[in-house]
């Protein structure tokens, strides 16, 4: 964790942001709808940050974020509905099932010599396929919403009368995702993944088991998102095949790419800016323009990719570096 030791300025910034994040539900408390929107922004922050592990570091573009979210939601929700198992435990099982499923996709596609594009293609259709499958699977899914049992204000069962607790749970998830991300980045796995994202043939002859590394990345990613799925189902109070949302999955990947592949806070930054703006507009203008957002996301991604291929976080990095370099120079003078 060099990052935290070296730069006190960065540490301070993180602390300030965290305190602001803690205060938001209090500011918005009069309007539950706005708290939900703020939680949604955090949700995308969690998803994009987790996405960074596989899509950013390892360079395996994944367009199936909501597949793992949906599976997590279904596992946790079904356990709660059928067997009255608390979602706190259900979400962990949900994460495990989601990652098991993800590995099933990853094992054939992460072999040496299979082009990365096939993984992207496979995941790009996965979410819609699962939506169809869960619509057809009457025992667990089906087209009718399955509601979670309601106990008012029950911590044990993750059921609350307001959205604020969900906000804090999601914030905790975000912190966890960031820490996992940062830990991986500074470990052997992180270096391996970064190198794999650059050139797989070169890593292979340096003794890197590409497939195992990529599968590990996929595991962390899908586990984090599967867990989030458990929270997601409680937040909405039901499970439904529409949780498998293809366009929104693409949006998660877009956030990761726009934010900056491989930079821990990049995808979060993009989520805060883009999803934040989107939810703010939705709150003030209503849902009429919902079709338009995705279009804007696509345009922003293409522009960013063509002109700032490493994402908007690099802009901030450059500014920051300039700033820090000046600091150091000043010290030398003194």
């Amino acid at each position: 964790m060099n990052f935290f030791k070296e730069i006190n300025l960065g540490k301070l910034l993180i602390l300030i942001l965290f305190i602001i994040a803690l205060g938001i539900p209090y500011v918005l408390r009069a309007n539950q709808y706005q708290v939900l929107l703020a939680t949604t922004v955090l949700l995308y922050g969690v998803m994009a940050t987790s996405w960074n592990i596989v899509g950013g570091l390892a360079g395996q573009l994944d367009f199936a974020a909501f597949a793992y979210l949906g599976i997590g939601a279904y596992v946790s929700g079904t356990l709660f509905i059928r067997f009255n198992i608390t979602p706190w435990f259900g979400m962990i099982l949900g994460g495990l099932v989601a990652s098991g499923f993800a590995l099933l996709i990853g094992i054939p596609l992460f072999r040496f010599g299979i082009k990365e594009v096939w993984y992207a293609l496979t995941t790009s259709a996965l979410v819609e396929i699962l939506k169809v499958a869960f619509n057809m699977w009457e025992k667990v899914g089906g087209p009718v919403e399955r509601c979670l049992p309601y106990f008012s204000g029950s911590w044990q069962n993750m059921r609350f009368v307001s959205y604020a607790p969900f906000y804090y749970i999601m914030l905790a998830m975000l912190v966890m995702a960031l820490i996992v991300n940062q830990k991986i980045t500074n470990s052997k796995l992180g270096y391996y993944l970064k190198a794999i994202g650059e050139d797989e043939t070169a890593t292979e002859v340096l003794g890197v088991d590409n497939r195992a590394s990529k599968l590990k990345a996929l595991f962390y990613y899908s586990f984090l998102i599967g867990m989030t799925g458990g929270i997601y189902s409680c937040m909405y109070g039901y499970i439904h095949p529409s949780f498998f949302n293809g366009p929104e999955s693409t949006k998660v990947a877009i956030l990761g790419i726009v934010g900056g592949r491989g930079i821990t806070y990049g995808p979060l930054l993009a989520a805060l800016l883009l999803v934040g703006a989107q939810e703010f507009l939705r709150a003030s203008l209503g849902g009429e323009f919902s079709g338009l957002y995705l279009l804007i996301y696509a345009v922003i991604m293409v522009i960013v990719v063509l002109f700032k291929p490493r994402g908007i976080a690099t802009i901030f990095q450059d500014i920051y570096r300039k700033f820090v370099v000046r600091e150091v120079k000043n010290k030398d003078v003194a």
């Binding site: 790009s124 877009i254 079709g291 338009l292 279009l295 996301y297 696509a298 991604m301 990719v305």
Partner: peptide, 23 residues
């Protein structure tokens, strides 16, 4: 460019066309 950029661009096009047809 890097393959991720190639993929990103055509995925962007896909998303764009999908959204346009919806609208």
């Amino acid at each position: 460019e890097h393959y991720t950029i190639q993929i990103a661009v055509t995925v962007g096009l896909m998303t764009f066309l999908g959204a346009i047809t919806q609208l």
